[in-house]
Design a binder for these strands. Structure first.
Lengths: 219, 219
DNA sequence: CGAATGCTAACTGTTGACAATTGCCCGTGT
DNA sequence: ACACGGGCAATTGTCAACAGTTAGCATTCG
């Protein structure tokens, strides 16, 4: 594992920035000045530019030419877009997972499912959301399609940022992960029932979208 | 439209490189030396790096750290991956398109459909493939989801590169766009029948995958 | 007093150069 | 003849500097 520790400089920077954005340390709309970041990380502007380009690809920052890069401030229509694409992706993912999931992966899925329930009952919501996302991720990984996982990860980070910014504006958006629905998905995959799995994912997202739309209206 | 003609330098370079890769002028596996490209385009290495990073995001080139960037040489398993993700994405896309497609977009779709048939009957296959891809693209655009279109475009360029490299190795992979299946999809969208549209897309990709798998076996 | 214009400061896009690492080639030893 | 090791060229990663552009502010004119 000598080729793996050779992490490119801009990757480390991107990781740290991503972390600071997702944990709210860098609020949405913040301006990211290349020079400042360069001095802060003790490097030149080159790697910083690369890191920002990567974050821009992930949709965590927006890059206005000649004007600078800012932490993305995603709106509710973005939330809807992200969820729509995630639904399409995950419906396909579980169909593939039904055909390919290994026993180890199924066990891992069960473990994450229990973790979600535990976090849900324990109380602190952020932990539950993290577990929720991990469950969705394993669903995509079980599809055995690297490109699909990559796209999901992009959408996942956007979801996290979205939840944070949306939540900062309106606490009423807070939600609890639907563990019961997750279990439907898990059961369908374990039972190798493709149609049921797809339907379970569709229900899941239908529920989520309805919920968000409902909240938006009641506000 | 004074802000649109200010195309970033690296964008123009990326466009030209993408073109040369997709039309086969730069064969798969070619080494792309930053210095050479810089002198060739009359710019510095900076914009070239940005352009290569963008192409790397699209999956058209692979970037080995400290070793260089090469035109991606995609294999048959990559083809399978790309088609799987495209299927998932487009199934979702047509479901949204059924709910949102405007009359103008439907007309555009019909136009592209006719163009595909015309190109198919005219003879030159590359033109037919181009029309085929344009049809798929309008299906995604009708979904009214910018992120989805972006992801589709990435997968589309990979598909083109893939078809070219695969075809160079084995001429037996040549195929003709299934215009009849396209018409099924178009009819379902125009008829606002979501389930039929999804089924039509699924059939389309099932057909394509079977065909590719069959060819691979008979060879 | 408001709006338009010119100035200033700051930041990005781009450039050229330096340093570090990699792969290759050749010589040497077995 | 072949494997191994050292030196060399080539190429990337990184850095510092320059020039163009943009936003903000003061000034001036109507």
């Amino acid at each position: 594992m000598s080729q793996l520790d050779h992490k490119q400089l801009w990757e480390s920077i991107a990781d740290r920035l991503r972390e600071e954005i997702l944990d709210g340390h860098l609020p949405a709309g913040s301006r990211l000045v290349e020079t400042d970041l360069a001095t802060r990380f003790g490097v030149s502007r080159g790697p910083v530019r690369d890191a920002l380009a990567d974050l821009s690809r992930s949709g965590l920052v927006v890059d206005l030419p000649r004007r600078g890069t800012f932490v993305a401030s995603l709106r509710e229509e973005d939330l809807a877009e992200v969820y729509e694409v995630r639904r399409a992706l995950e419906e396909g993912a579980v169909r593939m997972a039904v055909a390919r999931a290994s026993e180890e992966e199924l066990a891992e899925m069960d473990r994450l499912l229990s973790a979600t329930e535990a976090a849900y009952h324990a109380g602190p919501l952020p932990a539950a959301w993290e577990a929720d996302m991990a469950f969705h991720r394993i669903c995509c990984r079980m599809a055995g399609n690297g490109r699909l996982v990559e796209l999901f990860d992009q959408l996942a980070s956007q979801t996290v940022l979205l939840m944070r910014t949306a939540l900062a504006e309106r606490a009423s958006l807070a939600w609890t992960p639907p563990v019961a629905v997750h279990r439907h998905i898990a059961d369908a995959i374990r039972g190798r029932d493709a149609e049921a799995a797809v339907r379970a994912v569709a229900d899941h997202y239908q529920y989520t979208e309805d919920r968000l739309a409902g909240r938006a209206k009641t506000e």
